[in-house]
Each structure stands twice: as C-alpha cells, then as structure tokens.
Design a protein around this nucleic acid. Structure first.
Length: 210
DNA sequence: CTTCAGATGCTCT
DNA sequence: GAGCATCTGAAGA
C-alpha cells in the first residue's frame, strides 16, 4: 500500500504538522486486522528551540532517545501514569523533533476501535462518547492499541504507517465535507515559558458549523 | 453546557 | 518527591 515515504518526515516540523492533517493512519494489529483513522489535529514540537519539547536543548535521556532517531519513526510515551501519546519523528537524524497526533476520526467500521477503547461496539456508545471518539492523544492511542511497546517503530514498515488517501489503507474515502485548517497555541504546556504561545497546534474544522 | 477531583506510574532532579 | 504534551464521571448551572 502507498504509505508516505521517509522523505515526507524529513522536512520542517511545523510544516509537516499541517501536511499531516487529513492523512490516514493505518495500524495493523498483531493479531491481524487494520485500524484506519483520519488525522484531524496535530501539534509540532522542536527540540532545537522549543521549551515544550521533551528534548529541548538536545536533552538526551532514555525517554527522549527516540526523538533523535531518523525521521519517520513513532515516538510514544506514557503520560499522567495511564495514557499514551503518539508522535511522528521529523527532521534529520540527530535533530530531535516530532509531530504529536492529537486527534482523528475513524474511517470505515469503527467497531474494532470502539472495542479497544470501551469494550463495546460503536452502536452502544452514548452520543457524547461518539462525538468525542478519538479527539485526544490518549484516546487515539487507546483506540489504536498503541503503547510504549510500539515506541521507536519504523513508519515505513508494515504495522503502523500513514497514507495520503483511504484507498491506500484498503478502504474507500469517506464523503468529504468542506473543512478549514485552524491554528493556535498548543495544549497542556503551561510550563514552557515563551513557547506557550507558539501557534504550533493545527486542526481541521467543518465549514458548516454555525 | 461548565467545573472539579481523582486516577496512576514513569521520568528526571 | 514533584510534575506531567490526559481522561472520565459526577455534579452544578
């Protein structure tokens, strides 16, 4: 399938965060079966100049090691003791930077994702749970069954990758309604001083919202 | 719709 | 020992 090549992840992190919007994540489960979702929200983190980044100032520890990997790897870490966050490593090897995947929407049958997240099929969820199905980094990782075990995974491999179109993930593209890209400061980084206001969060919004 | 507390464990000082 | 790139359910307005 036509997954994005490593070169896609090589460039500027803030640009890649925008280019990832609308693209499709394919997660191939160890027990078989593909989970597919469409990216709707991202954030850029750049170790070189960004106090919000775990590897700010090229700080290299056991946790941040993955951020120094070549572009096109998954950086996954545990947050608040019980949730995980999925990032895609960007920029040349040795430049610690990544795009956090903050939100997505399911593509195709959502039951597999729903079972992983709620232990029940999508039809049995409350309207609130459906409306906020994958709109957070912790929710996304739970729904795609991603944990620290998958940290460092190569995105050009077979178990986790990104496609331009849903067909590349084996599913028909959903009907598209007009969307606009929005931009603003990142979430949950109050400690990051001047970087608090960097407008490095990007998300897609439906045009028909009144 | 909003606020609020609590859960929980790893990482770094 | 402090803090964290979060989420949930309960309660109030």
């Amino acid at each position: 399938m036509a997954r994005l090549p490593r070169e896609f992840y090589l460039g500027d992190t803030v640009e890649i965060a925008q280019q990832l919007l609308g693209k499709y994540i394919v997660r191939r489960l160890p027990q078989g079966g593909d989970l597919v979702c469409r990216i709707t929200e991202t954030e850029a983190y750049v170790g070189r100049c960004d106090k919000a980044c775990h590897a700010y100032g090229y700080r290299r520890t056991a946790r941040t090691e993955t951020l120094f990997a070549p572009p096109g790897h998954a950086y996954i870490y545990l947050i608040y003791g019980m949730y995980h966050c999925l990032n895609f490593v960007t920029e040349p090897e040795g430049e610690p930077a990544a795009v956090l995947i903050r939100g997505a929407e399911p593509v195709g049958n959502p039951d597999s994702i729903s079972l992983l997240r709620f232990s029940r099929p999508f039809a049995q969820l409350t309207p609130y749970q459906r409306r906020h199905f994958l709109d957070g980094p912790g929710k996304l990782c739970k729904g795609l069954s991603l944990t620290k075990v998958e940290n460092g995974m190569d995105l050009t491999g077979d178990t986790l990758f990104v496609c331009d179109r849903a067909e590349d993930g084996g599913l028909p593209s959903p009907p598209t309604v007009p969307e606009k890209m929005c931009r603003g400061p990142r979430i949950g980084i109050d400690y990051a001083q001047e970087a608090v206001e960097f407008p490095w969060r990007f998300w897609l919004e439906k045009e028909d919202k009144k």
